[in-house]
Design a protein around this nucleic acid. Structure first.
Lengths: 107, 107
DNA sequence: CCATTCAGGACAAATTTTGTCCAAAGATAA
DNA sequence: TTATCTTTGGACAAAATTTGTCCTGAATGG
């Protein structure tokens, strides 16, 4: 089970997996059953992978699915912050809210 | 300029602002020009406010617009984590990715 | 009783996202 | 150069999600 390089984007990691395997977009796309153009877009973070696709990618490259999913989720949060030009401290606030909302739901 | 109570949800804060002002949903809704039912849903975090609406709310209750917007964004992140049942450490990863993506863009 | 407020379901309309197709650009080799 | 293969990226229909409104019913307070 290969481990995934940290602190790049989801797409960047995917590209790295593919290049490490020495494969083309077309080849990998065929294996994970998507259009090569879509795979290219995902590698460039222009399209988001579905969960099902993340599973296929994890299976194909033999990486941990949960790890890959978390990479994707952290990407989404990072891009949201960048898009909104938000202050990084909202992450701390979000963390506190998670705890707060959990207590709300246990009532 | 009133300051907003921390560590609740966006909707919770909005409700608090309204109740502190002693106003009904209908009254506030009329002032910020939305349907009362929509306002009720926003207060219960069942609908998301648009940015324009956040501005109207900030103006109406005389609270800081940027602060309110950040409350909304941190809500979105918190709900994403809860929905996905993600580990909180993805927030740390997201923070690192923000820095990383910023360097990517300056190339 | 009547009037008012709020919760919440249903649903069409609006908006966003997805996935595919195609053309063009880039790379490599002969 | 030409031929071939890979990758990029635009356009766009289809699919999925979100929004805002309307309506009904429950609860509260005269």
């Amino acid at each position: 089970m290969a481990t995934v390089k940290k602190h790049t984007t989801f797409g960047g990691q995917l590209r790295q997996l593919r290049e490490t395997a020495g494969m083309t977009l077309r080849e990998v796309a065929a294996n994970i059953e998507i259009d090569p153009s879509l795979l290219a877009k995902i590698e460039r973070n222009q399209r988001q992978p579905t969960k099902h696709l993340i599973k296929n990618i994890a299976d194909f490259f033999e990486v941990n699915e949960k790890e890959l999913l978390e990479e994707f989720l952290s990407d989404q949060i990072a891009y949201k912050i960048l898009d909104e030009e938000a202050d990084l401290n909202i992450l701390k606030v979000a963390e506190e809210k998670v705890a707060y909302i959990k207590t709300l739901r246990n009532e």
